[in-house]
Amino acid sequence: MMNKTSLIAIALLVFMGFFPLFVDSAWLAVGTTFLVFSVVALSQDIILGRAGVFHMGHAMFFGLGAYTTAILNVNFGLPILATWAPAVLVPMLVAFVMVAPIIHLRGDYLLVATIGFNIIFIQVLENDIFGLTGGPNGLFGIDVVRVLGFDFSSQTHMYYMAFILLGITLFIMRNLDKSKFGRAMFYIHKDEIAAQSMGINVRYFKLYAFILGAGIAGAAGSMFSVQYSAVSPEAFNVTQSIMFFTIVLVGGSASLPGVLIGTFVMFVLPEMFREFETARYLVFGVAMILTMILRPRGIWPVRFGNIPDFLKKGVK
């Protein structure tokens, strides 16, 4: 049976699929970045919306993926394809090493710690540690994806690669939500003591959320670095982390359509008001304030109760 949500999802999918056919290159780039940012926001939502961990350093994982691809390609000459796996694995590893010692911290304390990690990350990039990161200017001349002599070099290619990445991410998120892992994160989020008392290892599932979220953000980062053929520190600073954090809350924590809407409102809308220069950030601020007042659970809040149909038979 088709419900309203799946119809909207399919309509949106078709629209996004044909989007490159009727826009100019500037809008195509906005479209690609929207897809990439959506992936990052969704991965932030695993940690924030599902596990309920106040994590405000997500741009770091995004940046780790981007820099892994950039460094391996520019400094070591690896083809982009060969950098994909490291771009996912490095953020995962860093997430484990950094977050494991602080995962027990309570909400506000952990928030500050994750901001701290993000700031250190930017410092490392800007100080050109080991001469690999290119300092404040970053790295240029990142290659395009080449497979068997075919170059995916046009903006349209970039768009569809990002489109596929978003598809994979949504597939993963749906599986997560329908597994013991996604549920465990929700239980911890809603009541940590009750969750523990049901046998849920809080530490394990919070770390699981972090590592999975970091890996997906890393994949998006790799895509991002190829799209712009360059990386620089300011794309991954705390301000960006705040944006990803805000996207989730404005759109709707743990809600797939919510996070996509959030990305649209927080990233694409300001682009539409580009002629208003810096005043466009007004949209940003006003959207944040209004949503929190009018719809504190987000524009499209999560709906629970997605249980198998055979259990709904007795519902009156």
Partner: peptide, 28 residues
């Protein structure tokens, strides 16, 4: 101490957590 926003069925499902045999990769 229930998971107030979650459905009754989902609340009871939390009790199945320790009985579930899903592996780490089944989250993905």
């Amino acid at each position: 101490r229930l998971f107030a926003e979650m459905s009754v069925a989902e609340n009871i499902m939390s009790g199945r957590h320790i009985k579930s045999k899903q592996r780490w990769y089944n989250g993905v």
